[in-house]
Write a protein that binds this DNA or RNA. Sequence first.
DNA 1: CTGTTAGCGCTTTCAG
DNA 2: CTGAAAGCGCTAACAG
Lengths: 344, 344
Amino acid sequence: MKAKKRVTIYDIAKKLNVTPSSVSRALNNSSYVNETTKKLILKTAEEMNYKRNTLASNLRRGQSKTIGVVVPRINQNFFANVIAGIEEITYKKGYNIIICQSGESYEKEVQSVNTLINQHVDCIVISISVDTEDYKHLQNVIDHQIQLIQFDRVAEELETLKVINDNEQASFEAVSHMISQGYRRIALLEGPQTLNIFRQRKNGYLQALAKHQMPVIDELIAQNAWTKELGATATRQLLSLSNPPDAIFASTSDFSALGVLEVANSMNFKVPQELGICGYSNENFSEITSPSITTIDQFSVYMGKTIANLFFQESENLQVETIPKVISIKPKLIARSSTEKNQQ
Amino acid sequence: MKAKKRVTIYDIAKKLNVTPSSVSRALNNSSYVNETTKKLILKTAEEMNYKRNTLASNLRRGQSKTIGVVVPRINQNFFANVIAGIEEITYKKGYNIIICQSGESYEKEVQSVNTLINQHVDCIVISISVDTEDYKHLQNVIDHQIQLIQFDRVAEELETLKVINDNEQASFEAVSHMISQGYRRIALLEGPQTLNIFRQRKNGYLQALAKHQMPVIDELIAQNAWTKELGATATRQLLSLSNPPDAIFASTSDFSALGVLEVANSMNFKVPQELGICGYSNENFSEITSPSITTIDQFSVYMGKTIANLFFQESENLQVETIPKVISIKPKLIARSSTEKNQQ
DNA sequence: CTGTTAGCGCTTTCAG
DNA sequence: CTGAAAGCGCTAACAG
């Protein structure tokens, strides 16, 4: 193993009979270096296949030009898209992103956050796991003067930058839409109420009912139905009631809506005539089921871009204390066949 | 902005009246330090909320415990899953991953690779973009003694570690399956032939035809049909032929297969009776279309794990020259309704 | 087991 | 404009 060393600025300096400082300056495009020698240095660096050691540079500068992202899972459309959005912006600015998955586990989330602190990232972007109920690790991020941006699933009590969806409004609109289509017994599949997003969606549901003077019926609210399987199980129960619902709002995801659709089919409930279905998230499959599923688009890629832009804005504006900002993105209801009771 | 400095090993050393070396040793769980003081140091570090500066540590050690991953897009199921698989393994070993997207652009791919070299990553995992036709940047990785692992879309001529799918075999099986179902004029939607995976899939198609003494009909091979839209366009042409195909193998992806399905529906071709359809990749939606789409599962998460394990194996076995290894994963045909001609 | 010392590669004052 | 020198925080020889 011949450890052929990498080319450093010293090698370039020696070859050109200048000092490392000058090389460094040239490489950083400083104006304090003769134009001619600058060009020469750049050319030589290229020729010698020099690659800057970002580690050393960052250590010296005390920043890493790196952003850490912690999400429950990256192979979920929503998160993958948010990350893609973030990356699109950060890439242009020469920033890297380090991605960690919490896998919905509190411990892994804490460990991920710690790794990112160790890495001296300039910013941590996080959507907390369903398991997360205390926020010491997030407070720690702040204590280490690292910019913290929460998105989607946020710890509301923590005063940080936040980029969220207006879940309540979206949910309100979805349920209102179902009501206007003529559905009268609308069930709700809700997610773990530890997560703010699921609480908000439930609120939207309740408000829509209230607005239209419709009663809240306890047996029509299914808790913890946030996967396809759990959604299916809940649906079996709901449709077995003596007085079953005529619509189900799967507020947790399109996956649970899919579970609803499959059970409805197997139990011979006609969708949308006998049972309306609305999901959440606009997964790519919701458009192509039969019938296609009404859902809510969260503009996930845009959300990612917003997060990245927010970070750069904040880091450029070097004010004494930045006011915690909350950016709320309004999701959009996408009405499809699964709620077309009227037209049938 | 009170730049409250971070706690360093010096702070701990001073407080405890030991040397930084001892602190370092304790923190690295070295045996060359008294058990009692080790415990004391660890406790104090915890109390002072010390976080190791990985940058400094890595600079000193000359490695970064970081793996760089370059993929065309992360919001594609296949890649997201591979990354999830990689992350699952690397996480346990205390390694981080940095993710870059090439967006199918050669320039961005080169830039991403360079960034990763700068970052002194220990390994670069890459699936090349469709645009990539020269491999200087990859050679560069090797020249910088960074482990290079190619996966899925690989530059075959480069002697590196590779983790691939046996596309040819999978494709062969898919087409054979369609033949055995009774389809006789099977069209192929092929992808850009610059990518090895698409060449292999075409080969598999050709071999299956040959094996069953079926002619290769040029007008049934549609080039560059590798998105849903392009697949749809190609299908419109194919189905307008005076002698249209009775099956279409969308070898590029389930997305193009979806395009096929939609056009078939709109042109009133009955699937699977009048037109069989087979896709590739087992996207989550392919199961729930009507009819469900026959496809090929690539074991993407497993592939990711394989890649990560390969890296650790190689880095542990410090042999003089490692032989370039190629791990081929056998994908699995998932026969669904869209090719059930027989049963109808 | 512990301390001393040097230095990873780069940037940044401070002089000139 | 350029050079000298110090040091980011940590680790690893080398002595003791």
